[in-house]
Structure formats: C-alpha cells, structure tokens
Design a binder for these strands. Structure first.
Ligand SMILES: Nc1ncnc2c1ncn2[C@H]1C[C@H](O)[C@@H](COP(=O)(O)OP(=O)(O)OP(=O)(O)O)O1
Ligand SMILES: [Mg+2]
Length: 852
DNA sequence: GGGGGAAGGACCA
DNA sequence: TTCCTGGTCCTTCCCCC
C-alpha cells in the first residue's frame, strides 16, 4: 500500500515534467478519444493529476504544488529522475499508440465488443456472492506507531521510520509535509526539516504483529495474514455463532453486528498493543481493503452487502484505490477517460479492444464490485522464488562485482537452507548506475542450493553482461541480485535433491551410466563460451548461449557394469575413460577425471582449435572458452539432442552426429558451430592482456582451465597446478578469467599460492572505478532485509497475492482474486497467452567450474 | 497456432 | 551526495514442432 504511494509520489512528479512538455496537439488527440461524456481528457484534468497521490491516508490537506516543487528540485537531474523520465516517455508513447488504435475503431466493432463484455458481466453478476462478511484490518502507520508508543517524545513531532536512503513509513504529522513511505530520507528532510528519523526495529514489529494475530484468531481462526500489519478475516461464522452475545434481545442487522464485532476487535488490538488499527467490512476482500482505508486512522467502514450499495460505492471510487491498479494502469485508463470505477462499464467495448482477456475479466469484476469471498483461496503451496539483492555505490570494478555475486549466492544459500528449498533456475539481476534493470537467467537440470553452483552460474551471467559493454564503457552497476526459482523442497521431491556439484555428478553417473556408450564425448551444438546471440533477443539484449551441455559421466564410463553405487559412495575405485583421448583413469575421484579432461581438452584445443567458433584472436579469453566447449551436464532432458563427437577429433574436422539414441552414430557429419550465436566482434571488449616476455610462451603451454592464469609446459605440471588450484576454491577473485579479461583488470588477483597473477601479466585495461561499498545503503539494506525476511517468514507471500489481481502494462489479470493465506500460495488460473518457443537456455560452464 | 523458457515490467508491503 | 528489498504474476518475444 505504502509502496504504491511511494511510486506515485515519484511518478506524479515525473508526470509534471512529461505533461508540461506535451504539445497541445497530443492533448487534443487524447481528448478526441471519448466514448462518453465522462471520458473527456482535458489539459486541466491532466495538470490536476500531476500532484502527489493524496489517496493515501493522511495525505490530504497540504500544499501539494509546493511539495511537488520541492521534490522535483531535490531529484531533478539525478540519474534516478532521468530514468523515471525516460520510463514516463515510454509510457506516454505507449498510451499514444493505444489512443491511436482506439481512434481507428469503427462504431460497429465497438458495439460488438461491448456486447461481448456485457455478456461476461452478466455471467459475473450471476456469480455474485454476498453471503460472507469479510474484514480487512490494517494497523495505522504501523512501524511509526510502534516507535511512537515506545518513545513518547516522538508522539507530537513529525517522524518517519527508515534511513537516509529510504523511509518505511511516516507518522501522520510528517505526512502533512508530504513525507511518505518509500521516499528517500534526504528528500523527506527537505520537505520537513524537523523530521525525526528513527531506524527500524523489525523484530519489535514482528513481535507486535504476533500479538495482533492472536486477536484475529478469536474472530476467525482461518484469518489470512497478508503482511506484518494487515490481514483479512471472514467473520461470517463468528457473527452467526455470537449474535446473541452482542445483542441479546432483539434481532440485530448485519451492519450493527459486524460493526460491533469489528469495533471490539480493534479495541482488543489496542488493549493488547496500545496501537490503533483501521478496518473495512464488506462482502469481499477487494471492497474490504478499499474500505479499511476510508476511515484511517483508528476507524472502520462498513459497506452493506447489497448490490445497490456496492454499485453506488464502486461507481464513485477512483480506480487507483483498487489494489492492483498502479501508476501505469491508472495513466492508461485515464487516457481513455476512465478515472472512476464507474467509468469502466461505459467503456467496456473500448477496453475489450485494447486489453487482453485476462485484463478484461479483471476490469469487469472491478466494475461490478466483485472480489474474493473465500479466504481459503489464499491457501496454497510453496514459495515460487527466493532471492537476495544488494544496492551499492555504482561501480564497474569487475572483481568487486564478481565478489558480490559470490557473496549473494552464499547469502541466498543460507536463506534457501533455512527454508529447505532448492531451485533450478538461477537468475542474475542487475541495475546499472542509470537504473536500468535487467535479469538474466539460466536453467539447471537439477535443483540445487549449492552456493558454488549458483555463484558460478550467476557469475557467468554477469560475465556475459560485462562482455556486451564496450571497453570504454564498462558495465557499471548499482545493484546486483541472485534469484533462484523453479523451487522444490529439499527433502520432499521425488528424487533426492542434488545440493552439490559433485553429488550431482555422482548421481548421474550411477543412474544414467547403464545405458551410455562409453567412448564418446557428448557435445552440444556449441559455441565459444560467453557468446551471445545479439540478434535473437527481442529486448535488444543478449541471451545466453543455448544448448550447452556438460559431458555426462555416463559417457565416461567404459561400461555400466563398472559403475555401481559404490562409486557414488566413493568407496571403490572406478574405471573412467576420458572421452577426449580415450585414456582409462583408475580413480574413484571424479576430480581426477575432471582434471584429466580439462587438461586433455585444453591441450587438444591448443593443438587443433577444438571449436571452430573459438576466436583465436581473443587472447587469453579464448583459451578459457575452449575449455568451456564441453558443457554442463545438468540437463538429462537434453541428452536426446546431443551431438556426439568422436573422440580425438579436432574441431575443424569434427564429425558430429545428430543423435537421439546415444548408440546411433550413423548420422551425417554436421557443423557444430552456429555462427549466429557467435559473439559479435567482442574482441575489442576484452582488454589485451599480454604475457610479459619473461613468462611462459603461451603458444606451447597448457593454460590452467580453472584459473585461466597459470600455464604449464607439461601435463604433469598442469595437473600439479590443478590440484592446488582446485583445492583452493577461494581465489581472491572467483572468476579470474573474467577479471583478467576485464577492462578494469587492475584488481590484483592472487592465485592459490598467494602470488599475484599479475606478476606475469601486463594488462592494459582501463582503470577501475571506485569499489567502496556504500555503507549507508548497506545498513539500510540490512534492516530492510530483516523486515522483509520477517514478513516472508510470516506470510511467505507477496503483496501481489495479498491484494488482488494486478494489471500489467496493458493487460490486467483476472485471476488474482484467490490469494495466499499464511505461507501458502494461491493456485492461479492460467491466462491465455501467446506462447512461443523459448530459446534454449544455457551458458557455458567449464567442467572445472563445477569442482571449484 | 501451440508449447514453453527468458526477459521485462507492473505491482505490493 | 543520496531513491530499498523480495516476491508474484502477466505479457511479449522467440524458435520449434
Ligand atoms: N515502501 C515501503 N518500504 C518499506 N516498508 C514499507 C513500505 N511501505 C510500507 N512499509 C511498511 C511500513 C509500514 O508501517 C508497514 C505497513 O504498511 P502500510 O499499512 O501500507 O502503511 P502504514 O501502516 O505505515 O500506514 P497506514 O496508516 O496508511 O496503514 O509496512
Ligand atoms: Mg498499515
């Protein structure tokens, strides 16, 4: 709730600029699209909307124009502001396009669409359930109230909870100055110099929340806690059971009874916590939520459960009051002349022609005042994703960024462990210093929570992003995040969970080994590592390299009979055959095989350009790419589409066979490399790293596939080095290859011996930028995390699930009415979408990476 | 045209 | 001088069948 307010306080200010720049032409065009008398969009209306969102409780009665001016002055020119402006311009363009489409519509078309929508409305109306009494309870200025309670000197001063970078909430005195949740502290101080900032104390809020919950349980044991300070209750049963107690003599009407019960509940909350709560009572959750805000603070509102009252109420309600309609949707609808819920129905036809089916259902239900009546729909299953992210002072220092990704992965691992979760999809989230958000993901074949695996993959994704940037403009980020999704529970999924790379490897060895053919190395249609498909991405962004497969150990086993459970238990030696040279390795240690393969590959590569895609001019990065030819083995599902490379083949003459059965080797020769997937002239991206004259001769040496730094002149010495390299996973820079190839490779990386890897290198990369963490934002993040982890523990659900279906840009969902309860999730109805075949995911990961 | 993954985006507390 | 964090759902794009 507060955050939507936060969004709007920013967005509204941006809109001022944006709208002021609009020429009258556009405004007239916008106003041309009017299908009824209420849908006219005038300049005045626009300007009047360019103010702070005063819908939020306590946000009325101040000089909005003055506040807007202060906010604008404080943020104008900042990158944040610029980004917001750009976003607004994009939205403006989108809206313009939408209006253009609307203008093309013939009356006949509109009429037809309207009829269809009316039919839907009839159907919805028929299903209207007015039998339940739903209450939405929301604590007043929750954090601030707790602090004011505990520090009485804060009672009469404007105060806010939060740090300098972001406020969680503010008290009502501060709200009069325009200070609100989600606002950065420095702007709040400008709005209200006397503002007292109180750091948050989340454990305290959690404790208070638990007390409030106990009160809820009296009235509805199945209450649905939506956040620390918010819950839905269905008090219908309680009303029936306790009517007599509230009105012993005569029959009480629903309103009196419900009001009395809720008043009592709020009183009990106050007695227990000394804090006030507000409540909304209505026939469904959507309406109840709106109602709880109407008499804030310390008030309640009852909306009679009859259709007429509901329609009167809803018709006058601004659309923005509906949970799920945010800044963007509000602007879109406003452009169509819809600012009140009552204006939806007269525009059914137009909406139908402009929005998706999902959205339509949602609009129809809003227009009829319909919403969720069954709180058990909030009951559902497991969490869908888990993530951690950090904001810091913008930096392009690759070492720093890599380290952060590693740290995040470890942190995420901790969170996942706590919840017993493992995931299959790793997503890296980045935000540039210009506030451009990006996510890049890669699917694993097996679920894991191993910080090493997650970290490796996330770093790979980051490398890919870095490599897209021109050398003179290295990727400069202010936020990094790692997310795992496609979650399952660690213990309860059908098969045992793979939590480490080696376990994963072992498992597959055992389970799949029996049918494998031994002397072939599985390779996908591979390309050099870090290659990106520039053209294929609709967003103009790169996608990770598809169809990467690591060799499965299945294929390294001379015969299935040699591999049994004892291998998994590591209690017995196994014979493993190198798929590259065919050499048999007697070892129970997979790492031994791995080392051998790496060395083998590397030497093969050096001798005979293993991969036709490898860019020989790519200096030190090309050698690491070579070792990444052989790809992740995490994807049993991809086995069928593998190409099988006969061992000892150089890439230039490699015969690969499209093969669905691994024993079918009769196919035609194929070219392994997809040229379209090649990285586009990224040569320049990599700084030139030259080996100094007194270092080894790179042409005849074996580059360590683990650190990509040390080169050896013989296999023996390489193996020796590999041992130490593998044993020391905590290289100071976790991905030296990246750091070394980075433009900012001035970071002094150290190899396992502690020797600077730059001792033998010259790097003409660019200077790094400041790498110092922002302690302020770090503090803030910590506390926010505390808070949110508390919320998650409590509800394990997002606000999205709490508050109803939410429209996205142009298309609104219809299914959001079922919501989570407690730590469970709703079962969502699938919306019809245009689905297309995805690009195959995957990114190169050297075998060795999995053993680091 | 359907299937399904990746990426972006809206929204919420 | 400064603009958070973690989660969900939806849509679009893309490629393949
Ligand atoms: N954008 C935000 N960032 C961090 N914390 C937030 C944010 N918005 C809300 N919160 C926290 C602080 C709030 O006290 C708590 C409950 O939110 P909410 O009910 O929307 O506001 P509130 O309880 O502070 O005021 P209100 O009286 O309007 O309900 O959640
Ligand atoms: Mg509240």
């Amino acid at each position: 709730m507060s955050d939507s307010a936060e969004k709007s306080w920013v967005d509204d200010v941006i809109m001022v600029t944006s709208q002021e720049n609009q020429d009258d032409d556009k405004l007239f065009k916008m106003s041309d699209v009017k299908l009824n008398s209420t849908s006219q969009v005038t300049k005045h209306q626009h300007i009047s909307n360019l103010t702070l969102n005063t819908h939020k409780a306590g946000m009325q009665g101040f000089d909005a124009a003055k506040i807007n001016e202060i906010i604008r002055k404080a943020s104008e020119g900042s990158r944040f502001y610029q980004h917001k402006q750009q976003a607004q311009q994009k939205l403006d363009a989108k809206i313009k396009e939408m209006l253009h489409t609307a203008q093309q519509m013939s009356p006949q078309l509109l009429e037809k669409a309207t009829k269809k929508m009316e039919a839907v409305a009839l159907e919805c109306e028929a299903g209207r359930d007015l039998s339940r009494t739903i209450v939405h309870v929301d604590m007043d200025m929750f954090y601030a109230a707790v602090e004011m309670r505990d520090q009485p000197n804060l009672k009469d001063v404007p105060m806010a909870v939060g740090g300098n970078s972001m406020l969680s909430t503010s008290n009502y005195i501060a709200r009069k100055f325009g200070v609100r949740a989600g606002m950065p502290g420095f702007i709040a101080r400008q709005l209200c110099p006397a503002l007292v900032l109180v750091p948050p104390n989340f454990s305290k809020y959690k404790a208070v929340s638990r007390v409030v919950e106990q009160v809820f349980a009296i009235y509805d044991p199945n209450y649905a806690m939506m956040s620390l300070d918010e819950a839905y209750l269905d008090i219908t049963d309680y009303m029936e059971a306790n009517a007599d107690a509230y009105q012993a003599k005569s029959e009480v009407d629903n309103e009196t009874l419900a009001e009395a019960i809720v008043r009592e509940m709020r009183l009990k909350i106050q007695e227990a916590t000394q804090l006030t709560a507000s409540a909304g009572i209505a026939a469904n959750t959507r309406l109840a939520k709106v109602c709880s805000d109407l008499n804030k603070p310390n008030g309640q509102y009852y909306l009679p459960s009859d259709t007429r009252a509901i329609m009167d109420f809803i018709n006058k309600l601004p659309i923005r009051k509906i949970s799920g309609i945010g800044n963007v949707t509000e602007q879109q609808l406003k452009a169509l002349g819809i600012t009140l819920c009552g204006q939806i129905r007269p525009n059914y036809g137009l909406l139908r022609l402009l929005f998706s089916d999902c959205s339509l259902d949602y609009f129809v239900r809003i227009s009829l005042g319909l919403g969720e009546t069954d709180l058990s729909n909030y009951t559902s299953g497991e969490q869908k994703s888990i993530s951690t992210e950090t904001t810091f002072t913008g930096t392009s220092c690759k070492q720093k960024l890599m380290q952060m990704v590693s740290d995040l992965s470890i942190e995420l691992h901790g969170d996942m462990k706590k919840k017993g979760l493992v995931g299959k999809l790793v997503t890296l989230k980045t935000k540039t210093v210009n506030f451009v958000l990006k996510t890049r993901s890669m699917a694993l074949g097996e679920p894991t929570s191993d910080p090493e695996v997650m970290g490796k993959v996330a770093r790979k994704l980051l490398i890919a992003e870095m490599e897209k940037c021109p050398v003179d403009e290295p990727l400069s980020l202010r936020l990094l995040g790692v997310r795992m999704s496609n979650l399952s529970e660690e213990a309860s999924s059908g098969r045992a969970k793979q939590t480490t790379i080696s376990k994963m490897f072992e498992k597959q060895t055992v389970s799949a080994g029996r049918e494998s053919s031994s002397n072939y190395c599985l390779v996908t249609e591979s390309v050099a590592s870090n290659t990106l498909s520039e053209a294929s991405d609709k967003h103009g962004s790169d996608s990770v390299n598809p169809e990467k497969i690591l060799p499965s150990l299945d294929n390294y086993c001379p015969s299935s009979s040699n591999i049994d459970a004892t291998v998994t238990n590591s209690s017995k030696n196994a014979q493993l055959i190198c798929p590259i040279c065919g050499e048999i390795i007697n070892s129970k240690f997979l790492t031994a095989l791995n080392r051998h393969i790496d060395a083998c590959l590397d030497s093969n590569v050096k001798k005979k350009s293993f991969n036709p895609c490898v860019d020989e001019t790519n200096n030190c990065s090309s050698s690491s790419e070579n070792s990444e030819e052989i790809q992740e083995k995490f994807r049993p599902s991809m086995i069928d589409n593998l190409k099988i490379l006969k061992p000892n083949l150089s890439s230039s003459s490699a015969q690969s066979v499209d093969c669905h059965s691994q024993n079918d080797l009769n196919g035609d020769d194929t070219v392994i490399c997809h040229s379209k997937l090649r990285r586009d002239s990224t040569d320049d991206v990599n700084p030139k790293i030259h080996y100094s004259t007194d270092s080894w001769d790179i042409r005849d040496s074996l580059l360590c596939p683990v650190c990509n730094v040390v080169t050896c002149t013989s296999l023996d010495s390489l193996n020796q080095h590999l041992d130490s390299c593998l044993a020391t996973s905590n290289l100071q820079c976790d991905s030296p290859d990246v750091c070394l190839t980075s433009p900012s490779a001035q970071c002094d990386l150290r190899n396992p011996t502690g020797k600077s890897v730059f001792e033998n290198l010259e790097c003409d990369g660019t200077q790094t930028q400041g790498c110092l963490p922002d302690s302020k934002s770090d503090d803030c993040r910590k506390s926010l995390q505390d808070y949110f982890s508390g919320v998650q523990t409590l509800t394990s659900c997002s606000s999205d699930l709490r508050t109803g279906p939410r429209p996205s840009t142009t298309f609104l969902s219809s299914n959001g009415e079922s919501r989570v309860r407690g730590s469970k999730r709703k079962v969502s109805k699938k919306c019809p979408t245009i689905n297309k075949k995805p690009r195959t995911s995957g990114i190169d990961i050297p075998i060795t990476d999995f053993f680091l």
